[in-house]
Computed example of a mutant assay.
Amino acid sequence: MLIRILFLLLFGCATWSAPAAALILYTEDWPPITYQHNGVADGMAVEVVREIQTRLHDNSPVEVVPWARGYKELLTSPGVMLFTVGRSEAREKQMSLLGPIAVSQTVLLARKGEAAKLLALGSGIYQRPVGAYRGSIFADAASAAGFVEVDLAPTPQVTAQKLLHGRYDMWVEGGFVVASVLKDIHQPPDAVEVVRVLESLELYLAFSRGTPGDEIRRWQDAFAAVKRDGSFKRIYNKWLPRDTPPMELRLIGVPPGH
C-alpha cells in the first residue's frame, strides 16, 4: 500500500509540473507593424504581443523570418503563432485567428504622376501588370480584383523597387506600411501615389491548426485584458497616431485545438 501511495504521489506531481509546450512565435519584416531592429523584433504588433506575453508570464522569443517561411510553418506545424495575418475566407478554414490587432487599407499604388493615366484606361487597367510580395494577402487581393498579371517578389521592399524601376505599373500593399517600405529603399514617401483603395483588411494573430485550445484561450483572455485596460490603445496610438485602433476582439476560424 505504501509503495502504491508513493507511486501515485510521484506520478501526480510529475503530471502537475509538466509545463505546456511554448508556442513558436513568428513575424515578418513589415514596418512599422513588425520588423527587426538591431537583431530584435520591434513594431506595433510586436509590442502588443509582448504585452500579452507579460500577462501570460511567457518569455518566448519573437523570431523575424521571411513571410513565406513563417506562413509555411503556420500551415504545416502545430504550436505556431504568426502575426500579422490578413483575414480571408480561405484562411478561416486553415487557422485560428485572434484579433483584430490592426485594420489596414489595401491600396493600389503607381509611380508619382501616373495614377490618372492608369484610371483613364477604365477596365483596361486590369490588363496592366501589378506587383505584390509572394504569399501575401495583397497578392490575393490583386487577383481577386481582376488583375490578370500579378508579379510576385520576396519582400515589399523588392516589390517597391521593381515598381519604381518600371518592371510593372502598379504595386498592391497595406497602406500604413508604404512610407516605411519606401524609406527602407531610400525613396521619398511621395515617390508613389494611390490609384485606388481595393479593400479594408483586418489583421490578426494566427494560430496553426492543432495548437492546444487551452493555450489559444489563454492568449484570448490576455489580449482581451490588454484591450480592456487601455494598454492596446496606448501602444496603437504610439505607432499609428493617425489611425483608430480596433477595440473589438474576436476568435474566428478553425476552433481551438482542432
Rank of each mutant, 00 (worst) to 15 (best):
F207G: 06
V148T: 15
E193W: 10
R196Y: 00
S136K: 08
D42I: 00
L205H: 12
W30H: 14
T54S: 03
P245F: 03
F232V: 01
Y26E: 02
D151G: 00
V178S: 04
R209Q: 15
L182V: 10
A142E: 07
M44Y: 04
G12H: 07
I125G: 01
A153D: 05
V172C: 09
L9F: 14
H186E: 15
R196S: 15
L75I: 02
A68F: 02
V178K: 05
M81R: 03
G253M: 02
V80Q: 08
P100E: 06
E47Y: 01
L75M: 15
E73S: 13
Q36M: 13
K233M: 01
G113I: 06
V46C: 11
Y71I: 03
N59H: 11
L23H: 05
A120Q: 11
A142W: 05
P212I: 12
D229L: 09
T106W: 03
L164K: 09
T159D: 06
A144N: 09
N59Q: 12
V148P: 00
G70I: 02
V107Q: 13
E92S: 13
C13W: 10
L9P: 02
G131L: 08
A191Q: 07
P129K: 03
H186Y: 07
T34L: 07
G122K: 08
P19H: 04
H186Q: 14
V195Y: 05
V194N: 05
M81P: 05
L201N: 11
S17L: 13
G12F: 09
V49K: 03
T15C: 11
L25W: 15
Y133I: 00
S200E: 15
A68D: 15
Y126H: 12
T106R: 08
I3S: 13
L198Y: 09
Q105K: 15
G257A: 13
Q94A: 14
G12W: 09
L249G: 01
R167C: 04
E202V: 01
A141G: 05
P256R: 07
R87S: 06
S77V: 13
S96F: 04
A141H: 13
Q53Y: 02
P241V: 04
F147P: 04
P78W: 10
L8R: 06
V65M: 13
I252P: 02
A41W: 11
N59F: 01
L198C: 10
A45K: 00
S88P: 09
M170P: 07
